[in-house]
């Protein structure tokens, strides 16, 4: 088969919301499958190696809106945004919404059935420029109304799953939600996947720009979910360690504060676990600089040292009690 014409390969864009699942105990595979059974006639996808990851079937939301751009020329686009919910180790919930911008949609909106045959594809009507779109979409401000907003789709899905009756609404620790907005442009030349930007803006929005080799859009979205998951883990761990006042005098209070970290977070770190080879360059770059795993390991080591110190110095009765 001839290699696809690079200039005609579509851009992918999306947004991921990540939150702790508000339940006192992590969900088992079975309960997780119930939680994410968003469509009765489709499978919930379940993977248990190397960790438990459960993904809902994909849902579509119809859009007929403008594409973002910085220069104000906002072409109209019509299609569907695909969304799914993903639960890792029964504990971290993500809602991910994404779309492929496929040019050649003509100048007029087609019958709706046309778009439903292309799930997750948004067709710009008329001309648009990839660079304009990328800059407009990744600008850190909230997207203006009437402009393609996968984040809003993800947000709604996240809220819907978090309200599920299976959840007792008791999160084991305090944590925030993170938002990661991403764009994947076709890789140039030899088609090697790379990351061009990972920015954390003041308002908490993470923006990622990738260059990707030809790959399934769902795999690219999964890579961004993986980035968002580990960014959330790191953010959450940093905040919990800070709140525990690690290094202050009261070791027992520190340990109490860190207990949920040990119980619920430390085993979740597995960057790139399911990323296919063709997309794996992204993690290699991030591990070189800033070194996500380096920071994580350093924090984990600090926590383990505290636990070890405490165990050595604990008086007997407390030990017996625990």
């Amino acid at each position: 088969m001839a290699p696809p014409d690079r200039d005609r390969r579509p851009i992918l864009c999306g947004e991921v919301r990540t939150s702790v699942l508000r339940t006192s105990e992590a969900l088992t595979a079975r309960t997780a499958a119930q939680l994410l059974n968003l469509r009765p006639d489709e499978h919930v996808l379940l993977s248990e190696r190397p960790n438990l990851r459960v993904a809902s079937p994909q849902l579509l939301t119809g859009v007929d809106c403008r594409l973002p751009s910085l220069n104000g020329s906002r072409p109209r686009a019509v299609g569907t945004v695909a969304a799914r919910a993903v639960l890792t180790e029964g504990r971290v919930l993500q809602a991910s919404a994404f779309a492929r911008l496929v040019p050649g949609g003509g100048d007029h909106r087609k019958p709706w059935g046309h778009y439903l045959l292309r799930p997750g594809v948004v067709e710009p009507l008329g001309r648009h420029q990839d660079g304009e779109f990328t800059e407009g979409f990744l600008a850190a401000a909230p997207l203006p109304g009437g402009v393609l907003n996968p984040g809003a789709v993800a947000e709604r899905l996240l809220d819907e799953v978090l309200r599920h009756r299976l959840l007792d609404q008791r999160a084991p620790f305090k944590s925030g939600r993170t938002r990661l907005r991403w764009v994947a442009l076709p890789a140039a030349g030899d088609g090697v996947t790379s990351i061009e930007r990972f920015t954390v803006a003041a308002d908490g929005l993470r923006t990622v720009a990738l260059r990707v080799a030809p790959a399934d859009p769902s795999a690219v979205a999964a890579l961004c979910e993986d980035l968002a998951l580990h960014d959330w883990l790191l953010t959450t761990l940093v905040a919990l360690v800070e709140r525990s006042r690690l290094g202050s005098g009261d070791r027992e209070a520190v340990l109490t504060a860190l207990r949920p970290v040990v119980d619920h977070l430390l085993h979740l770190w597995m960057p790139g676990a399911r990323v296919p080879d063709v997309l794996s360059g992204v993690w290699e770059t991030l591990e070189r600089r800033p070194g996500f795993s380096r920071q994580w390991q350093a924090l984990v080591q600090r926590i383990r040292d505290q636990v070890a110190l405490q165990t050595v110095s604990l008086p007997r009765p407390v030990l017996a009690d625990s």
Binding site: R39, P40, D41, L60, T61, G62, V63, D64, C65, R66, R76, V78, T80, V81, A97, W112, L116, L143, G145, G146, V147, L148, N149, P150, A152, V153, R156
Partner: peptide, 26 residues
């Protein structure tokens, strides 16, 4: 044993009016 009509209903994706940017439900 399969609720076909309910399954098909869950597959309805309504045609969006102009201005639908994903922020409002269908």
């Amino acid at each position: 044993g399969v609720a076909l009509a309910a399954s098909v209903e869950s597959r309805l994706v309504e045609s969006p009016p102009e201005g639908s940017d994903g922020s409002r439900p269908g």
